[in-house]
Design a protein around this nucleic acid. Structure first.
Ligand SMILES: [Mn+2]
Ligand SMILES: [Mn+2]
Ligand SMILES: [Zn+2]
Ligand SMILES: [Zn+2]
Lengths: 139, 139
DNA sequence: ATATTTTTGCAACATTATTGCATTTTATAT
DNA sequence: ATATAAAATGCAATAATGTTGCAAAAATAT
């Protein structure tokens, strides 16, 4: 596992540092997406808040994690599993936010449906965010 | 126009106040969706920030405006054109955010495509947010 | 017109985000 | 292994954003 994180950083020409390794670990362990705040709590007193901001920003730029928009002013992040690269994300999967347990899932296997835009509109990125009740909470 | 705003407020059992009328007007005039901050700027020194927060919240609850999630920690708002009511929104249209001019459009005529969820997941709300280049910027 | 209800503004506070710079850590070259 | 260069971190200061309680003001109901 550690070696995988290491190669992710190397591959992206990023220095290997304690915070970056730790944050990658948090994402890997996480059951769903994480907000900045989650990371802050889970790594209490380990790093500065600023380091977390900068790490997340770097990871997004490099295509290591992707953002998930939510309707409540909290951006979530999750590991990219597709082939995302520097400046070009490719995570066209659906995101599901459970209204009950609040876990956010990357539904890797349900591709974003294609959207038909009016003439003259050029599409770049599509975010499909579904909210509702998840499998666990439904049972 | 004024009379329309008035009837919107009446219909929803809301007192008719200067701030509510003005904010409705801003939405009607707006070329696209507005963020809290946009409203603050456009109504400089007219009302308190807190009033804007509370007005937006009330309007969302009543189904007068709807939220549009974005990936950069800023929630946008736009007038509901469909039949939205207290506690039950019905704006299942696609939103388009132009990367160039930054205007956010409600694409009223392109319904959100239906999403196929894994077994056990129950869907409540779907947000489809497309970003790219809009008609005006493309020309 | 008066009483009641609702909304507003202010102040205080909390949370979240950004920036510059000195120090520390990591990577590179010898 | 050591010295050098490059990059990342922590800290402090500051900005931006969001929340709450309460008294004053405005709107509605009687
Ligand atoms: Mn995802
Ligand atoms: Mn809309
Ligand atoms: Zn759940
Ligand atoms: Zn545009």
């Amino acid at each position: 596992m550690q070696t995988e994180f290491l190669s992710i950083l190397k591959k992206n020409n990023l220095s290997v540092t304690e915070s970056r390794m730790k944050i990658l670990e948090l994402f890997a362990q996480a059951n769903g997406a994480l907000a900045h705040n989650d990371i802050e709590k889970k790594s209490k007193l380990q790093f500065d808040r600023v380091t977390i901001y900068r790490t997340l920003q770097t990871f997004v730029e490099k295509g290591i994690i992707h953002t998930i928009p939510t309707a409540d002013n909290s951006v979530l992040y999750a590991l990219c599993k597709d082939e995302c690269t520097q400046g070009h994300h490719n995570d066209n999967h659906v995101h599901f936010i459970c209204d009950s347990c609040n876990v956010t899932y990357c539904l890797e296997h349900s591709n974003s449906p294609s959207v038909i835009l009016p003439k003259g509109f050029k599409q770049n990125r599509v975010d499909v965010v579904v909210s509702g009740i998840c499998l666990k909470c439904n049972a």
